[in-house]
C-alpha cells in the first residue's frame, strides 16, 4: 500500500515534469503541423538563460525573463526561418528544425563551454515541505508541480475560452477564411511557435537545476517528449497531460517493484534452466526495463491506435 501511494504521488510529480517538457511541442504540432525537433534545444536554452540571468538578478526574475527570451528567439526562428521553408512542405520543416537543434547545441557550447554549469535550486525554496514514507519533498518540487498545473489550466483556457484561442484555432483549420476576415494569420503562427518555445524555456528554467545543465541535456531529453505527444495524440493538450501522468506513474511503479518474469513463472510452476539463453530474459526485473517501457508503449500505440489516446488524426 505504501509503495502504491508513493508511486502515485511521485508519478504525478514526475509526470507533470514530462508534461511541462512536452506541452509546447504538442501545441506547436497541433496548431501548426510542425514537428519541432529542436524543442528539447529550446528547453536547454531556457536552462542556460536561467543560469546566466539568475547569476545577476536571482532566480525569480529569471523565471520570467528566460522563457520570454526563449519565446522571442522562437518567434524570430519562425519568422525568418520556418516561414520560408514552410512552402516546401513538412519534410523541409522537419529537416530545418533538425539542423536547428545542432546549431543551438554548438552555440551553447561556444558560449557556456562544454562542461556542466552550476545552476542550482534557489535557496528560499530549498527546504523540506513534508515527508512521505521517510522521503523528504522540497518546496521546490511542489512549486514545479504548481507551475505545471497552472500551465495546463492557462493553456486550456487560452485555447478554448478566449477570442484569441478562437482565432488561433480558426487560423489553423481555415487560414484563408480567417485571413479574409482581416486577421493576420502569419502573425498568429509566429505567436504560437513563440509560445511553444517559451513553454519549453520555462520547463528548462524549472528542471535545469534538477536534471543538470549541460550541452548534452537536449539530446538526452529528445526522445521522451516525442513519446509523450505520440501516445497522447499529436496536437492534443489533454492527451499530453494524460500520457505524461500515465508514463510518470508507470515508470515510478515499475522501478519500485522488483518483480521478474522468472518469479512469476516460478509461482505457476515453470522452471527455466539456469544455463538457458532464456534465463537472462526472464530474470530481468520490471525495475530494470522501466526506462524502456515508454518506448514499448509508443510502438504498441502506433500499432493499435496510430492517432494516440486523444488525437484526431493519424501520425
Amino acid at each position: 500500500m505504501d509503495i502504491l501511494i508513493f508511486s502515485l504521488f511521485n508519478g504525478i510529480l514526475y509526470g507533470m515534469l514530462l508534461f511541462m517538457l512536452s506541452s509546447g511541442l504538442t501545441l506547436i504540432f497541433g496548431m501548426m503541423g510542425v514537428l519541432n525537433f529542436a524543442h528539447a534545444s529550446f528547453f536547454m536554452l531556457g536552462a542556460y538563460f536561467a543560469y546566466q540571468i539568475s547569476k545577476f538578478v536571482g532566480f525569480w526574475p529569471a523565471l520570467i525573463i528566460a522563457p520570454v527570451v526563449v519565446g522571442v528567439i522562437g518567434a524570430i526562428v519562425e519568422r525568418y526561418g520556418l516561414r520560408r521553408v514552410h512552402k516546401f512542405g513538412h519534410v523541409a520543416e522537419l529537416l530545418f528544425t533538425f539542423g536547428l537543434a545542432y546549431v543551438i547545441e554548438e552555440a551553447v557550447q561556444m558560449i557556456w563551454g562544454k562542461v556542466p554549469v552550476s545552476y542550482h535550486i534557489p535557496e528560499v525554496m530549498n527546504f523540506t515541505l513534508f515527508s512521505l514514507y521517510g522521503l523528504e519533498y522540497s518546496a521546490y518540487r511542489v512549486f514545479m508541480l504548481l507551475v505545471a498545473v497552472s500551465m495546463f489550466v492557462a493553456l486550456f483556457f487560452l485555447l478554448t475560452r478566449t477570442r484569441v484561442g478562437l482565432i488561433i484555432q480558426g487560423a489553423l483549420t481555415y487560414p484563408n477564411i480567417v485571413a479574409s476576415l482581416g486577421h493576420n494569420v502569419p502573425l498568429v503562427f509566429m505567436m504560437v511557435f513563440g509560445l511553444g518555445c517559451a513553454l519549453a524555456g520555462l520547463a528548462g528554467v524549472l528542471a535545469g537545476n534538477i536534471l543538470g545543465t549541460e550541452p548534452g541535456m537536449a539530446i538526452q531529453l529528445g526522445p521522451i517528449v516525442f513519446v509523450v505527444i505520440v501516445i497522447g495524440g499529436l496536437g492534443s493538450l489533454n492527451g499530453a497531460l494524460v500520457a505524461s501522468l500515465f508514463i510518470g506513474i508507470m515508470q515510478t511503479t515499475a522501478v519500485s517493484y522488483d518483480v521478474s518474469m522468472n518469479g512469476f513463472l516460478n509461482v505457476i510452476g515453470v522452471q527455466v534452466d539456469f544455463d538457458s539463453a532464456w534465463r537472462m530474459l526472464v530474470d530481468l526485473t520490471v525495475a530494470q526495463i522501466s526506462p524502456i517501457l515508454p518506448y514499448l508503449l509508443l510502438t504498441l500505440m502506433l500499432i493499435v491506435r496510430p492517432r494516440g489516446l486523444f488525437g484526431v488524426r493519424d501520425v
Binding site: 511521485n10 514526475y14 538526452q220 531529453l221 510518470g248 515510478t252 519500485s256 530494470q288 526506462p291 524502456i292
Partner: peptide
C-alpha cells in the same frame, strides 16, 4: 543490487532513492 539504463536516460531517481531508503 540495481542496474539502471545508462547515459542520462533516467530523469527521475526518486523511486530508486525510495528503494534505497526502504
Amino acid at each position: 543490487d540495481e542496474l539502471i539504463v545508462p547515459f542520462g536516460k533516467v530523469l527521475d531517481f526518486t523511486p530508486y532513492i525510495a528503494k534505497i531508503k526502504a
